[in-house]
Design a protein around this nucleic acid. Sequence first.
DNA 1: ACTATTATTTATCAAATGATAAACAACTTG
DNA 2: CAAGTTGTTTATCATTTGATAAATAATAGT
Lengths: 223, 223
Amino acid sequence: MKKPSRARPRAPIREQQRLDPSERESIIAREAVSFFAEFGFEGQTRELARRLRITQPLLYRYFPSKDALIERVYQEVFVERWKPSWEKIITDRSVPLKTRLIQFYREYAEVILTYEWIRLFMFAGLKDLGLNARYLKMLRERAFEKLIEEIRFEYGRPSTRDLPITVLEIEMVWGLHAAIFYLGVRKFIYSMPLETDVNSIIDAKVMTFLGGIRPVLPAETAT
Amino acid sequence: MKKPSRARPRAPIREQQRLDPSERESIIAREAVSFFAEFGFEGQTRELARRLRITQPLLYRYFPSKDALIERVYQEVFVERWKPSWEKIITDRSVPLKTRLIQFYREYAEVILTYEWIRLFMFAGLKDLGLNARYLKMLRERAFEKLIEEIRFEYGRPSTRDLPITVLEIEMVWGLHAAIFYLGVRKFIYSMPLETDVNSIIDAKVMTFLGGIRPVLPAETAT
DNA sequence: ACTATTATTTATCAAATGATAAACAACTTG
DNA sequence: CAAGTTGTTTATCATTTGATAAATAATAGT
């Protein structure tokens, strides 16, 4: 049992004031990620400040405008969370292709299947700032195209350098990506709890994908 | 008998004023669908009015509040556009299963793969009003569950009445749904033009789906 | 301890925005 | 044509909201 003492609040639970600028800035940025993910970019700066237990004008000491803060949120989520190691996973031919794919998609899913990532990406898309197109272009170049190159190699097909990626091939990859992304949409946008383990879904999708893409690949090199 | 003898306005080039209430209301509703699909539900009533070439207070003559107008938009898009005939297509056993699936998904895709449907559905989800959950529940009951029942029947498996739908089965259907829906997301939210014919993608997905769901079905009836 | 610095708050502004009331004007009816 | 009905506009209100300037107070340097 505790003795309620309303005498003095023990311990310096006291609101700390005057933080170091860099620290304050990162605190604001972090909270902004969570805040805008929940309410969208029309969320009000006053409400964000309230959550941070600071006053609203203080935000403008660290970010010149609301848009600048939103820019920072993008950076935080869509740039910082990209892991260059993923590209290594995909292209590491000392590992079986299927294993690589599963590992990549599992790790990638772990990053994007979060409340913040999914919702912010969707908010950004609806608002349109070209952010999504830019991101997906990067995703295509850094991951999808490498991935198709690896699949071509695995099955003894011409390199994508010699024979450009076909519409059907990239469409297959989009399909796999859609399946994973949609899990996040269901969970974080539709508020529908997933009844299945994400990893096992990914494994199954990857295997179906590998089975399905074969007939879509260009013919074997028969020069 | 009331006779709406509308005195013919001569040469309707002139901005027509004083419309019939029911007509004005439907014009407003129609424009609101397009407007909110573009800007989201935070789109301003003044801007909507400007598009309609009417003044903003007139909106409030026909809809008591902005929320009521939004409610109407939901009705217009997510209720009115549902076609009961789809359920007949799915369950019409005089037609081969694959044909039914392809026909249903083609028709369904034609309705939901529109700028308005996709974006409004996403805006609604992000705002959360339970609308999406409600819609998807309906989709599951009226389409997906019937669809699984038909597949079970086709392959001589127990009825879903005797053996409830499994998580894996419904997951497969979600996967197919995701693939189609994501086409809309790419096009209308990410602004990425689709390079392929939607119908052929659907056909391919349906066939992959039918091949993939078989091992997931419950064992054959061995009473 | 004193002073300079600066993180933070208080006070406010101006524009935007949903909503209402009253004035206006187009159409109908007698 | 006069009068009444009602579709539409004008004028306006009360909040909300991004942003700024000045005042305040916590910390560092000497």
